[in-house]
Design a protein around this nucleic acid. Structure first.
Length: 878
RNA sequence: GGAUGAUUAGCUCAGUUGGUUAGAGCGUUCGAUUCACAUUCGAAAGGUCACUGGUUCGAGUCCAGUAUCAUCCACCA
């Protein structure tokens, strides 16, 4: 049968069709895989992308890594499950839609009202969500779409409510007044890690509250001083020691304050005056001091960022206006001692950039330090730290364990309420002073917009932090809570939880990973995953973060269109190591496209030279004939062992590199070249079979295409797909070190001679032919004489090759050849003396591993033979 | 201020538990090419593994310190 095979592989022609075949086969769902009952599960949850935008290269990299893991384990016979989904990304999404709305219609969300605005959000997210899911399929991701989830779909809403209620009943969720980061523009609280810091120039004012107060304080925010209730000094500070414990009534620009002087070791004596005006309501640190010293809390700034009532002429001003006025008034009254410019850090909102106002507010919190019965009288924090310490959860690379534990150790109570509209509604209702917490609304529910008033239950208007729902991702996607009754897991939760790996970016260890751990420990009573594999960020060619504003972003879909998914995947997998950022450029993707073409041509060549070519999983010793056969089969079996080991240890890059070099350098450049003269279709069929299986997790499309062309006629034969084939197993009996060594010499010889002869326009193929045919002439000794000439096992042979070189050298440039020989001789002299002294060292011989010692012994013999050969040759030349 | 990482060829990066003469790709130079592939092939040049010490028979790899860069965390009253 003559095959018509195009010259190059055209990914665009096959990829979508192949993906459809995979998806239709149902094999993405592990329940459909033909597996023994005791097959182990291998579960990964896909970190759900935010539905705010389409996918970027970072997502592609994540998909490539996870799909590699899933395909590898599926082939290895695991019950491989990869769960897809998307994240509603509450604040981020609301912001995007708000911005759009303003741009397109000039309206704010308040103009529309809650209900209409939310409709807009859903309209928006349906579109982006569809795009994201389509793009995910484009990457070849073998996700089980039958289990697709969204952090804000009905099932997840139920789960989140259940979780909230359970935590509330356990007392680990509670409402309280705490100081929070408040964005006056977004009108919402922000978590600590949602803040961004900007250095800015600020004025540092030094002044006294009034003339009767003995201590001057320094601040960049004089307007908050209206709420001061204390002045803190360092207990060691001799200047102020005597005042500690005293209380002063002061008149601060017409506002009466009671100021107590307190001692606190955190106060730096060198900064400003060494005295800090304590404003408990508007500074995190001051809040803590107030708690410790039992100080009064005076709120100065309200939730719009303005000065509250009761502060005389300052009331109603914005904080900036008030700051200027306070400064002016201080100067007028002669209390201002100094005004200097300093640099300080301003916390700003990560969404809108407005400066953040710390202020006390009623919020819902997860109490991370509360001891819980269900956790063996440990707190969420303690338990979450314990699982990392006991290595129940391992981080890759390991150094991130420290980042996790450090952060966990310093974790404060987690504020989970957000004053935004889009997100999970808080399942809490109020009626006057009464409060109701439950999965369903209580009877007599009033309209959502109404104020809590007597007679009607009104739901809390806030929504939950987006990480609350994504923190539940490993179990909310596996049917929690239905699948957990009385502590007993059932169905999916039993089969697939805890998951095996969480693969994600190191930047969200704190935001996400830590929360998943706490929530899973609480809800299911077990860890959410065994391993956390952290990938780096994908940077541009110059090592800069890709961003739309800089215009240096590469759209993965453009790259797929241009070079094919396999090339994009390979470019993202090879050259990236865990925890380290990676650079990527179009050139890199292009070079992997070339590799895919190379693989294609290996197939094209083999299929056209062997019309009856059959892929075989195994090969019998009898069918391995020539040295080249022995060599390639041996190399292949080593490769299988190495790649398997690498993948098991998450060394994807290394595995990919090895595969690439085998296919390109060993198989295509050498074995196929020689096979033009010495055909052996069994070996080729065997090698290609294994290579396709090994490469499939890296480049699923091209390998499936070739596999299909060679193995099955119609696309309908689901169980013949490469995707569900077995992973190759290395056969140690086929590893032949001797053959490898011999072949290496052959390569060297051919290379050298080809290069020398090439200036005489002698066809290199003919040279290969000379050697290769001789190798297979069944007069083994004769053949190897030429080849082994270089292997230098005996002096006589070395002289032979030396003479061969001499022949050639004579034809070329004797002086050059002499120079080269001289260099070689020096090199070998060096090696001989080095190795000798090493072997004479008793400590080395006794303490080094045996194989290292033996290796050196062998080497010494080899070096010596070579050295003598070269010397003799040089003499001859002279 | 605290922590973590990086520093290896002109460029981008590998280098597994310390063990042959430290690797790859790109680039450069020389050469080949009716052959499955110009998306090709053969070869060469190019390295004090940031620096200084230490441990060891042996260090790119382990330890300590220094420098530069990057990232994260805290704080800047």
């Amino acid at each position: 049968m003559k095959r018509e095979i195009p010259k190059t592989y055209e990914p665009q022609r096959y990829e979508d069709k192949i993906y459809k075949t995979w998806e239709k086969s149902g094999m993405f769902n592990p329940d459909n895989l033909k597996l023994p009952k005791n097959a182990k599960p291998y579960t990964i949850v896909l970190p759900p992308p935010n539905i705010t935008d389409k996918l970027h290269l970072g997502h592609s990299s994540m998909l490539a890594i996870e799909d590699l893991l899933i395909r590898f384990h599926r082939m290895k016979g695991y019950r491989a499950l990869w769960i897809p989904g998307t994240d509603h990304a509450a604040i981020a999404t609301q912001n995007v839609v708000e911005k759009r709305l303003l741009k397109e219609t000039g309206k704010t969300r308040h103009d529309l009202g809650r209900e209409k605005f939310l409709k807009e959000v859903w309209k928006f997210l349906r579109v982006t969500q569809k795009t994201i899911l389509k793009q995910t399929r484009k990457m070849g991701a073998s996700l089980d779409w039958s289990r697709e989830a969204f952090t804000l779909d009905d099932e997840r809403i139920k789960a989140v409510r259940k979780m909230f209620v359970e935590m509330y009943e356990e007392g680990v969720i509670s409402r309280g007044e705490r100081i929070v980061n408040w964005c006056p523009r977004c009108k919402s609280t922000l978590a600590d890690d949602e803040l961004e810091y900007a250095t800015q120039k600020a004025k540092l004012y030094t002044f006294k509250y009034d003339k009767n107060f003995p201590i001057a304080i320094a601040t960049t925010r004089p307007e908050t001083k209206l709420g001061d209730t204390a002045v803190a000094v360092n207990p060691k500070d001799v200047r102020y020691k005597n005042f500690i414990g005293q209380t002063f009534d002061v008149d601060f620009l017409g506002v009466a304050l009671k100021i107590k002087v307190i001692a606190d070791r955190q106060i730096e004596m060198d900064f400003g005056t060494g005295a800090l005006g304590v404003t408990p309501a508007h500074s995190m640190v001051d809040w803590k001091m107030a708690e410790e010293n039992d100080l009064e809390i005076v709120k100065v700034i309200n939730e719009d960022g303005n000065i509250r009532e009761g502060f005389g002429k300052f009331s109603g001003l914005t904080s900036l206006e008030a700051r200027e006025l306070v400064a002016k008034e201080l100067e007028k009254s002669g209390m201002l001692e100094k005004e200097e410019e300093i640099e300080n850090n301003l916390s700003t909102c990560y969404r809108c950039g407005a400066s953040v106002e710390p202020l006390p507010s009623k919020q819902w919190f997860v109490l991370v330090d509360k001891k819980l019965k269900r956790l063996g009288n440990k707190s969420l924090k303690e338990k979450a730290l314990e699982v990392a310490k006991k290595k129940e959860i391992e981080f890759m690379p390991e150094r991130f364990t420290k980042r996790y534990t450090d952060w966990m150790t310093n974790l404060h109570d987690w504020c989970i309420s957000r004053q935004i509209w889009f997100g999970h509604e808080i399942p809490v209702w109020y009626k006057g002073e009464e409060i109701y917490v439950g999965e369903k609304a209580p009877k007599g529910k009033g309209p959502a917009s109404a104020k809590a008033s007597a007679g009607k239950w009104v739901q809390d208007p806030d929504t939950l932090d987006t990480w609350f729902s994504s923190g539940m991702w490993t179990f909310s996607t596996l049917g929690w809570p239905q699948n957990l009754k009385n502590g007993k897991k059932s169905n999916d939760l039993k089969k697939f939880h805890p998951t095996q790996v969480l693969e994600t970016g190191y930047e969200i260890i704190t935001l996400w990973v830590s929360r998943m751990i706490m929530m899973s420990l609480f809800a299911v009573g077990e860890i959410p995953f065994e391993k956390v594999y952290l990938h780096g960020m994908v940077l541009d060619k110059l090592g800069k973060k890709m961003s739309k504003s800089k215009g240096n972003g590469i759209d993965p879909m453009d790259m797929i269109e241009k070079f094919g998914t396999d090339a994009v995947r390979l470019a993202l997998l090879v050259g990236s190591t865990p925890g380290n950022d990676m650079r990527i450029s179009e050139d890199k993707i292009e070079s992997f496209r070339n590799f895919v073409t190379k693989l294609w041509n290996v197939y094209r060549f083999s299929a056209t030279s062997y019309p009856e070519l059959k892929l075989a999983e195994k090969i019998s010793q009898k069918k391995i004939k020539t040295l080249a056969d022995r060599w390639i089969v041996s190399r292949l079996n080593e490769l299988i062992a190495e790649v398997t080991d690498d993948l098991e240890k998450y060394r994807f890059s290394l595995a990919g590199e090895k595969l690439q070099s085998f296919v390109w350098n060993d198989l295509a450049d050498w074995y196929l070249e020689i096979s033009k003269l010495e055909k052996n279709e069994y070996v080729i069929g065997y090698v290609i079979n294994c290579v396709l299986r090994l490469l499939h997790p890296f480049a699923p499309f091209v390998t499936e295409k070739i596999w299909g062309d060679l193995n099955y006629e119609s696309a309908s034969s689901a169980d013949k797909m490469l995707m569900v084939e077995k992973w190759p197993v290395s056969d140690k009996k086929l590893i032949d070190k001797k053959a490898e060594k011999e072949f290496k010499k052959l390569q060297e010889t051919i290379g050298k001679i080809r290069n020398i002869r090439s200036s005489y326009r002698i066809d290199p193929v003919r040279i290969i032919k000379t050697y290769a045919t001789k190798l297979n002439n069944k007069e083994i000794i004769e053949k190897l004489a030429r080849v082994e000439i270089l292997s230098g096992k005996s002096k006589a042979k070395t002289i032979k090759i030396a003479n061969l070189h001499l022949d050639i050298a004579e034809l070329i440039d004797i002086e050059k050849e002499k120079e080269r020989l001289q260099k070689e001789i020096e090199n070998f002299e060096n090696l001989v003396s080095k190795t000798e002294s090493l072997l004479n060292n008793e400590k080395f011989v006794s303490s080094a591993p045996k194989n290292v010692v033996d290796l050196n012994r062998n080497n010494l013999v080899e070096y010596k033979t070579k050295l003598e050969g070269q010397r003799e040759l040089l003499e001859n030349l002279n």
